[in-house]
Design a protein around this nucleic acid. Structure first.
Lengths: 197, 197
DNA sequence: TAAAAGTCTTAAACTAGTTCATTTTTTTTC
DNA sequence: GAAAAAAAATGAACTAGTTTAAGACTTTTA
């Protein structure tokens, strides 16, 4: 059977960890919702209860919180082939503290909470898929949780550039600063310094 | 059937997310290894391939890496009812970058990699257990990954004290500094300042 | 396509946290 | 329970990163 490009992308993503039959693929696709977000529009805002998990098939979004002073702290940039959302609000049904805003016109596939629960009943293999997905995310977050306290801002910038070369050129320096955890002014200094070398 | 205290502790931990029959409980227990670590002894050291995941039934251990200058960065303190290890090395079979050292005489239950894989075959419900366990760990690491860059050292100390009041009194100020990501000298200043208030 | 809004750069004065050195207090060891 | 070792406290000089402000450059919008 032929799937459209966005569906092929998500099926390839799932197939990295589990094998699905044709029937299961169709069933899975039937549980997904297609979503479009225009540049500068929000996918979610603090205070809402998050009812979807999202897979990005096109575009770029920034995931962030605002601190008491209203300053943004970006926790991830989500591009094609990435999963995003707020797993905490999604699971607990408590209001999220996150904003997700498109930095480019974007297209996503959403899994609603109802369909997420249904998925485990209908295709129990998905317990395994999510076990491995969460395990891998966990590994990268465990590693990252030390970055902020053990590396200098310059080292964090170099590490980000090395790990996500495709993303660096798609985002503003200001957003990068909000990700690295420094002011845009200091970000500017670091970039000048690093590129001079 | 009657289980010994350490086995009851781990069965209670597992039962938070899945229900096991008596037979499954016995099967699970049979896959566990009892481990003792004396204060100051290592459970693992950088360079080793990690073949166990550990559940602590008694004591306290610190999980840390050493940076190029030989300075320790503690990523967690593991006490009773906590899981620890290095999930990355455990899964990929690559050498770990972590040290785990007991800060008190400790007792643990270990799941070997072979038994971990076997577990999913014998009791598929454990896919669900680990899916939920990793999901919850992920939620707390996602939250924590921003702490280092968005909070001051004093705020991180206050947050730690609030979240882990039982642990603060069991560890040295020096180790707490290595967790918070500051020098012992500055840790001392912060504690004096915060307690003065 | 002009005006407005947002982003980037530079620089000077400032603050959170480090480094190094010394003394006091607590814990470990024989 | 005395001696040794490790942890904690204090202070002065230093550095990474912030704040504020102003001008140059780029993108968005009407």
């Amino acid at each position: 059977m032929n799937f459209k490009a966005s569906h092929t992308l998500i099926l390839d993503n799932v197939s990295r960890f589990i094998d699905l039959t044709e029937l299961e693929k169709q069933k899975y696709i039937s549980l997904l919702t297609e979503i479009e977000v225009k540049k500068k529009d929000f996918l979610m805002q603090a205070g809402e209860i998050v009812t979807y998990e999202y897979f990005i098939t096109k575009g770029c979004l920034k995931v962030y919180t605002l601190d008491e002073d209203g300053a943004p702290h970006i926790s991830m940039f989500a591009v094609e082939d990435y999963w995003t959302g707020d797993i905490s609000s999604f699971m607990t049904k408590e209001p999220t503290r996150y904003y997700i805003k498109a930095t480019e016109d974007s297209e996503l596939l959403g899994v609603s909470r109802a369909n997420y629960d249904l998925l485990f009943q209908e295709i129990p293999k998905f317990e395994r898929f999510y076990r491995i997905l969460y395990q891998r995310s966990l590994i990268s977050y465990i590693r990252r949780s030390n970055y902020g306290i053990s590396l200098t801002a310059e080292e964090r910038y170099i590490a980000f550039k090395k790990k996500y070369p495709q993303i660096v050129n798609r985002i503003t320096q200001k957003d990068l600063a909000a990700y690295i955890g420094i002011t845009p002014e200091f970000m500017s200094k670091i970039i000048t310094k690093v590129n001079r070398k």
